[in-house]
């Protein structure tokens, strides 16, 4: 169970329009040793639905959909699938598939894109 205060801080940062909120979420959330904090943060970054926040969870190795914990990765994918406006996600996924240097990240992006097409 995620700490209540930490969850509130992540929610507050999600609601923030300030760009630096994404940096804080990436620095303290996606790098947290706690799986639940990483999961909650990844979902929060997806909910923001802006280029920089989505890039954190899609193109970074070991974060978001590329997280080593299957629970974190699946939860992030689920959040991506439930987005109403998927245009920005699809754009980033295409760029990742075409241009990313890491094959695993590319493969994951391809899988998520397939799921988006099916949903």
């Amino acid at each position: 169970m995620i700490n209540k205060n930490v969850a509130e801080i992540i929610d507050a940062l999600t609601a923030h329009q300030d760009h630096s909120s994404i940096e804080v979420l990436e620095e303290l959330g996606t790098n947290s040793p706690d799986n639940e904090v990483r999961e909650y943060t990844s979902r929060a970054l997806v909910r923001k639905n802006v280029h920089d926040s989505l890039a954190v969870v899609i193109i970074n190795q070991g974060k978001g959909i590329n997280d080593l914990s299957p629970a974190v990765a699946m939860s992030t994918i689920n959040e991506i699938l439930s987005l109403k406006d998927k245009s920005e996600v699809i754009k980033i996924l295409d760029d990742t598939i075409n241009m990313h240097s890491d094959e695993t990240v590319k493969e994951n992006a391809r899988s998520v894109k397939s799921l988006l097409a099916l949903s």
Partner: peptide, 22 residues
């Protein structure tokens, strides 16, 4: 109450303190 009314810097400090407490 922790809310988006707080600045990002304040929220970051709070998070760091919370991590220390945990």
């Amino acid at each position: 109450k922790i809310s988006s009314d707080m600045t990002v810097a304040e929220l970051k400090d709070l998070w760091i303190k919370e991590n220390e407490l945990i």
